[in-house]
């Protein structure tokens, strides 16, 4: 690691002041990606602004048809939440599949979403449920938030405060994990929301999470895994690496989507 200064603000306002919109300063959430990045000297921030002691950024609440999860809420808390399990069981299930116990005890939903790793799980839930990302400045629809690999609509210094999820009629997440890292080689989140069926894919796209509109159209005719048979997702634009070729990932999207539709019931 290169040298950096460390700040531990107690409030959102203080965190904003410490960061000051300076691109060389970084917020520290769970650190599950940022700390390895610092160790590998892939990033050289002058300052880290630790968000861990800001109480207003953590916590889960359910009001009406909306589940709100504070940005600093740990994956383990979402996985163990009776409220989330009751309102959106697929979301609690997804959180339980992230990494391993040590990661789930430190990693946060805000950090995962802001990082937008192309193989992370949460982006699929946000896009699949049509969630809203709330920042200190504005609210951003998931459809507008994710803008490519590790790229989001966040401006320098803009801080995610919470994510709000509309409660769907039904939803499920199925993933084919890399057996070592537990990152998604392909993960598919399906849901029936007020706006109709949604199908979101993580782990596969070279530009990160994306929706499969052909599958969504097919599911408008009825919620059945059989309706997805024969819908081929092109391998163009999918990741190809030592774990799986683009063609294999394209195949897995179909398999995981059908399993997810069946699991949602």
């Amino acid at each position: 690691m290169y040298e950096f200064a460390y700040h531990r603000p107690a409030s959102l306002a203080e965190a904003k002041t410490k960061h000051g919109g300076d691109d060389d300063r970084r917020y520290l959430a769970g650190g599950m990606t940022l700390l390895p990045t610092l160790k590998h000297r892939l990033a050289r921030p002058t300052d880290l602004v630790d968000l861990a002691r800001i109480g207003e950024l953590a916590g889960i609440s359910v009001a009406g048809n909306t589940v709100s999860i504070g940005a600093m809420t740990k994956h383990a808390a979402v996985a163990a939440s009776a409220e989330v399990a009751k309102a959106i069981p697929a979301l609690a299930h997804l959180a339980s599949l992230i990494g391993d116990r040590q990661v789930r005890n430190r990693g946060t939903i805000g950090g995962s979403v802001a990082n937008n790793d192309p193989a992370a799980d949460y982006p699929a839930a946000l896009l699949g449920l049509g969630a809203t990302v709330h920042t200190d400045k504005r609210s951003i629809a998931a459809d507008d938030f994710f803008q490519g690999m590790f790229a989001t609509a966040l401006e320098p210094g803009e801080l995610i405060t919470k994510i709000s999820f509309p409660v769907p009629q039904k939803a499920a997440y199925q993933k084919f994990p890399n057996p070592a890292s537990r990152y998604a080689m392909v993960g598919v989140f399906v849901a029936v929301t007020g706006g109709g069926p949604r199908v979101a894919v993580t782990g596969a796209g070279a530009n990160g999470v994306f929706r499969v509109t052909a599958m969504e159209e097919a599911l408008k005719g009825g919620w059945s895994a059989d309706r997805l048979k024969g819908i081929a997702v092109p391998a163009d634009g999918l990741n190809s690496d030592i774990h799986a070729s683009a063609e294999y990932r394209a195949h897995l999207i179909g398999v995981m989507a059908r399993r997810a539709v069946a699991a949602a019931g």
Partner: peptide, 15 residues
Amino acid sequence: GRLVCSCLVLGVEAE
């Protein structure tokens, strides 16, 4: 009380 990897926690975070 929570299981974590101490290699991914900064010493200053232990305050």
